[in-house]
Design a protein around this nucleic acid. Structure first.
Lengths: 234, 234
DNA sequence: ACCTGAACACCGTTCAAGT
DNA sequence: ACCTGAACACCGTTCAAGT
């Protein structure tokens, strides 16, 4: 009885992307437990009953092992949720949309919010544990889109911060849920997307500033004219 | 050993603003327990040990009563956290900054994020329970700022959604914490504020569109010229 | 009406003991 | 190395009993 699920590309593809962690990549290990199997089972439970419904006991039962066995692979529940969060990120980073930088970004944000929204309570956890989650391929994917668009280094940072905060807030508030209550909820969804467009407008303003600055710098270099105010500094 | 605390205006001012709830407003009740006293104690605990450190037992002990006594005033922990969340909102809505609409909004967002950031884990809870929190005076305060600025009805909704998502994401990730780790964290803070400025740029674009639309409508009304496409509709 | 004392069901985590 | 069975400490919530 599950809602429309995105393909579990990240889980089935390769063992959970343990970005940053020094642990060696696990072998497929045809039988027995594995990080990938645990994360997959955890995702299914969360999708059904939410993060608060995910219990180490319930998880172990679904995996057909004793409670202690799960703890042999995952140190604690917090770390397990981090694995799940990274898994969702990796999956969302996989499906790269086409088009101009802003439509690509827009689609990516909406897809990501929708993906996270399928796991009740997950966005709240992710927003509270940003520092331990950001080092993923999603980061790289977004950075690349912005770099190709022409954003400067700091422009990229700023836009990414805004996007990240927005997507977590958006998914946590559950406005994108395609649940059974389709009354005046469509209005909230259009407002949420409107907020995203607002953000993209701001990003466009920023992009013009970044490009203008670079063009001026290049022009000065070509003419070999020292910068008026800080000529002695270079 | 508390961090710089904002004045507890909302708590001491009047009993916790139970927006929407049908419950009658409680009398001061000089002695004994009260919603206001419970919320205040809860805030202190959360500020010290976070939402996860807040325990109904610990709370009751700090209040000097038995566990059951607290439950006589607050139905459950979820509802208690809602009271705390609304209390923080009401407090933040109280200090209205001066200046133009965008600087007022900017200051308000940063103050709000900073206020929430003082209560670890609170932002995650608030972002996960938007629907039960939004009906506060903060909502009114922000709406008023935007209306006076000249935003249309939908423009207000969109800007507010963007602001809300951003502020929760911002405060939850704790970039505004003035904690002991002042290394490269100031950089993250400036990036967070940069994201906010991005959003305000977008809002400015939106405002121009709103004002332009209204001006055109007024001009048509003055000239009594029917609208080309939908003349028969009015 | 308000509070106490004690209980219930459940949770995350640990660990000696088995293979 | 991997798993089982059982325990420990703690939590949210309830409720008969007192005043």
């Amino acid at each position: 009885m599950n809602i429309v699920r995105v393909e579990d590309a990240a889980v089935t593809g390769r063992p959970t992307g343990n970005a940053g962690a020094g642990r060696p990549v696990e072998e497929p290990s045809t039988d027995g437990l594995s990080d990938a199997r645990i994360v997959e089972a955890a995702r299914n439970i969360i999708a059904e009953v939410g993060v608060n419904g995910l219990t180490m006991r319930r998880l172990s039962a679904d995996l057909g092992v004793a409670l202690g066995a799960t703890y042999h692979h995952v140190p604690n529940k917090h770390e397990l949720l981090l694995l799940v969060g990274r898994d969702i990120y990796v999956e969302a980073a996989g499906l790269a949309p086409e088009g101009s930088w802003d439509t690509r970004l827009r689609t990516l944000v909406l897809q990501l919010a929708s993906a996270i929204g399928q796991y009740p309570g997950m966005a709240a956890f992710m927003v509270a544990n940003t520092g331990e989650l950001v080092t993923t391929e999603l980061n790289r994917a977004v950075r690349q889109i912005l770099r190709q668009a022409g954003f400067g280094r700091r422009g990229i940072d700023v836009v990414m911060a805004a996007m990240f905060f927005y997507v977590t807030g958006l998914s946590a508030s559950g406005f994108l849920d395609q649940k059974e209550n389709g009354e005046a909820l469509g209005d909230m969804q259009s407002i949420s997307e409107g907020g995203l467009d607002l953000l993209l407008d701001g990003a466009r303003v920023r992009l013009e500033a970044d490009i203008g600055r670079r063009r001026r710098t290049a022009a000065r270099r070509r003419a070999s004219v020292p910068v008026p105010g800080r000529a002695s500094n270079v």
